[in-house]
Structure formats: C-alpha cells, structure tokens
Write a protein that binds this DNA or RNA. Structure first.
Lengths: 133, 133
DNA sequence: GGAACTCGGACTAAAACGGTCCTATTTATG
DNA sequence: CATAAATAGGACCGTTTTAGTCCGAGTTCC
C-alpha cells in the first residue's frame, strides 16, 4: 500500500542512469549495472520512450537518451509514463473520469482525500529527474 | 499503485463517522450508512481499537468512540493501525529494518526516494482526523 | 435466555505484480 | 550480405495482495 511498483523503481533508476550517461544507454547496460531483469527494464524503457521522456535509437549500438533536460522531467512524468495517467488517483473515485464511487454521495471523505492527493502530487511534481542524478 | 487500500478508505470513513457522532457507533451503523461490507468494516474497527485510536464497548448497544481528540489523530495513525507500521515505506529497502535491497549498493536512487518518502509522510502526518469531519 | 454487539481466525475468488519467453524489426559492422 | 546487437511488443505464468465472506465464541443489556 502506497508502495512504488518495481517498474517505477526501475524506471527511476533507468532515468537517472540515462541522465548521468555521456552517450546512449542500452537496456542491457542498465540491467547489468543494477542486476535487474533485462526484459523488464526493457519494457519500462519502451514505455518511457513512448511517453516521450526518452528517445530510442534502434539497431546495433542503439539505446536511449533523454528527450529533454533532466530538470524538465518530474517524477510524476515517470510514474505516469509507466503506470498510465489513470493511476494518478489515491482512490478510484478520484481517479476515474466517470467518477464512479460505490459509496457515492454517501462518501464523506472525498474532499479531504482530494486535498491529500493534491499534496501528494505536489511532492512528485516538484521532484525532478535532475535532482536524483 | 500509490492507492489507498479499501480497508484504509473504510477506516477513514469510520473514523470520521465516529468523530462526528454524539454517542457510540457500531459497525452495523457504519456499514449501513455507507453501504459497506459489515464484516470488513468490523475488522477495520477492531484494528483501530487494538491500535488505541478508538475504544470499544462490547455487548448490546455497544460500539466505538474516539480514544482521544480528533485533532490528535493523524491519517498516518489510521494507516499504520490498519496496514501495520511496516508498510510505511515507499520501497522495500526503506521499509525493512534489515535494509535488504536486491539492488544493494548499486542503488543510486535510495537517497532521493528517502526524501520523497519523508515528504509523503509529512502530508499524512499533518492531516488530522479533525480536518475530515 | 435471547438479541445485539465485539472479537478473531479460516478461507476464497479475483486482481495486481513481477517476471519470463518468444518473435519481429532495425541497424552498425566485418 | 550475413550476422550480431539493439529496440519493439505480445503472450503467458506463478505468486502475492486485496477485498471480501463465513463461522464460532465471548460480552452485555434487557
């Protein structure tokens, strides 16, 4: 509960590695360096690339580089890229666009939870990849 | 990911209810009022009682009342009571006392994660039950 | 004694998580 | 041109967590 998933954890490690690297970084390079599953980190990198946080270079000697400055990439960006922006809610009624909530209008804690969520997001938004290098 | 569990959600609803109530509140009263599983909310209440956040009154017309002022109970208190204090970490290497971490000294993001975790805890520590009533 | 409670263990279905495997495509290099 | 090293991505799987049920037992009021 309230734990970061391994994917996000690997994503952050990878982002830091790429940000600190001089040239392109391959999935193998990262998986070796941190003793992480290659396939898994590769998938995470693909998601980060698809989200536009890093750019891929295919083929031999390929790999990834940052798509923009590390100071312009927040932890929220990384989390959203990997988990999907829909995971942004602390409870489902704050997450879903449809606003489905079984407790419905009986729910007395929706507003305070919204405030908490806002504060949490602030934490992740404020911290940039540049700060973890 | 980063979602509150249903138990915690129910726990917060229950705490709010009890804090706002004039007399004792039973599990049935709460489960009826918010259309929640009775057994589940009953278990949550037991945990809250065991953690000393609320006091139980057994037998007929029994139920629960706050053990101390709502302003003196933080969201962290509620979460810890329900999930166990061991769940306090954002990643396992920050959670476990043994400090086990597969990435071990290769882990480059431990310190920044620690900072993030500290900020998150601050959010939950600052918010009190009295603020959700 | 019975009704309405709390207490708490055992159990289960479903979903999420962490991870593997396999195949296709792209690209530098000998 | 063949091959090796990469990315790209779908399919699958075992384990753990989650959310919830069920049941038996103890308590207290009427």
């Amino acid at each position: 509960m309230l734990k970061l998933s391994k994917k996000v954890e690997y994503g952050l490690i990878a982002m830091r590695h790429i940000a600190a690297a001089q040239s392109v970084s391959s999935a193998k390079e990262i998986s070796d360096r941190y003793a992480i599953s290659h396939d898994l980190v590769a998938k995470v990198l693909q998601k980060l690339a698809k989200a536009g946080l890093i750019v891929s270079q295919q083929g031999m000697n390929g790999g990834y580089t940052l798509a923009r400055r590390a100071a312009d990439i927040s932890i929220t960006n990384v989390i959203d890229a990997i988990e999907g922006a829909a995971s942004a809610g602390i409870v489902q009624c704050l997450t879903a666009d449809d606003g489905i909530c079984s407790i419905y209008d009986n729910c007395t804690i929706k507003n305070p939870l919204g405030k908490i969520q806002h504060n949490l997001h602030q934490v992740f938004n404020t911290m940039k990849v540049s700060e973890i290098v």
